[in-house]
Design a protein around this nucleic acid. Structure first.
Lengths: 238, 238
DNA sequence: CGCTCTGTTGACTAGACTCAAGGCTAGTGG
DNA sequence: CCACTAGCCTTGAGTCTAGTCAACAGAGCG
């Protein structure tokens, strides 16, 4: 059960905790690609657990430029921020078709109140999230386009397939979305991807990117997975 | 008592909680400017509460370029990440001379275990932190230098002096540090600051920057304080 | 007094953006 | 089955924002 994947390893939860949490996330819903899950400034009535597929969170500037601030995949809890504050302070959308479980905010708040271990597991999740944000600030602020894109591809590949993945991981990102995640323009992303493909680091086919040579890409992208804290939050289920 | 300022308003803590927390943060230490509080990769034995002064957290790339990922001031808890994970995943340093209280990690962990309300207050703090990180990603990724710097100056001024500050807030940032916080070069920061000063938006004297016209600077910087969540975490004590 | 650190200035470069056009693919409707 | 359209990708040419390099000024300090 991927929802609790992240909570399992932390060693914080007992049987009761896990059962109570799972009881809340019973029925799943299918969402199309590019569906809005939460919108900046609007009240949050329910939290979303991502059972399969990809989603992202983004913000926009006053000039309508968009920045993707995080990517999410199977097993991620999508709006712990909205859970505690009651309003979303950024957009959340699906990237691909997704299976999700919606949990009413009030029920989840009550659970957190009742079960301190779950609160702590959520807190830990938030801390790891924050660690990833910090790495993104560094990535966007201080790395050139090539390194920057390589880094993001590595991060995503590792989160999808794990560190020791033999199977190349395919990432469902359009070049426009990659641009929004890296703070670049689609045109420039296109050129960089071509160059990465020429160097046999990645491969592209109908809108998806697959990492061919993770070690070399990681070295190019200065990628060190420590900031993902795999010791606390397992990377891939498989 | 500034340490609990952030925890007060959340309405989560009762008398017991507050007393127990304060008991841990009794003796204060003075630190010089530019003192290392935590270093990336090293174990964290104690958490640091900032009683006065400014501090920052930063990361560096493989090419030794530095990115400041957050600024901290009086009342901030500095290493909740290290508290939970046991190792720092970034550097923490003082910007100015600081008065701090060190709290042993084990004691704080025990407190969090014993008092769920404190754990939730810390979690909330982490969530607000994460919200600021997201705004920084947007700022660094999608805004031009002028807007970017204006935004950061507004954020810091508002956190220091509050939203309705009549007194212009002075920010103790060198141009090099501002550059590291915005992902620019010191030379470029210098030119932008000159232009902002020429427009009478800010003023500079011996290494400190004071905001002269917050409303206009905010409009230039696309600054909307919502992401700081002043409703949860009071901005300034005064 | 010289050293170091920060700020300042100018000239030059380059990495990334803009604009614009054209191609490919998949999906849609006739 | 075949236009037609909408997205996305690709390419080229030209521009510009921000970076680089280098030199110097001023303040603070030992």
């Amino acid at each position: 059960m991927p929802i609790v994947r992240k909570l399992e390893r932390s060693g914080l939860l007992d049987e009761h905790d896990r059962a109570e949490f799972l009881a809340l996330a019973q029925e799943a819903t299918m969402l199309d690609a590019d569906t809005v899950i939460a919108r900046d400034g609007e009240p949050v009535e329910r939290c979303c657990a991502l059972l399969s597929g990809f989603a992202y969170r983004s913000k926009i500037t006053g000039e309508d430029k968009r920045q993707i601030v995080s990517l999410h995949l199977r097993g991620d809890l999508l709006d712990l921020h909205g859970l505690m504050t009651g309003t979303a302070d950024h957009d959340i959308r699906t990237l691909t078709p997704c299976r999700v479980a919606f949990i009413p905010r009030t029920a989840l708040l009550a659970l957190v109140e009742r079960r301190p271990a779950i609160a702590r597991a959520f807190w830990l999740d938030t801390l790891v999230d924050a660690s990833v944000f910090r790495e993104w600030i560094l990535n966007v602020g201080r790395r050139g386009a090539r390194t920057r894109i390589a880094h993001l591809l590595c991060e995503t590949a590792v989160r999808v397939a794990g560190l020791d993945a033999q199977t190349a991981a395919a990432l469902p990102l359009t070049q426009g979305q990659l641009a929004d995640a890296t703070g670049l323009t689609p045109v420039h992303v296109n050129r960089v991807l071509q160059s990465l493909a020429q160097d046999r680091l990645i491969e592209r086919e109908n809108g998806a990117i697959t990492v061919l040579d993770l070690p070399r890409l990681a070295s190019l992208g200065e990628f060190d997975p420590a900031y993902l804290h795999p010791e606390l939050i397992p990377l891939a289920t498989g």
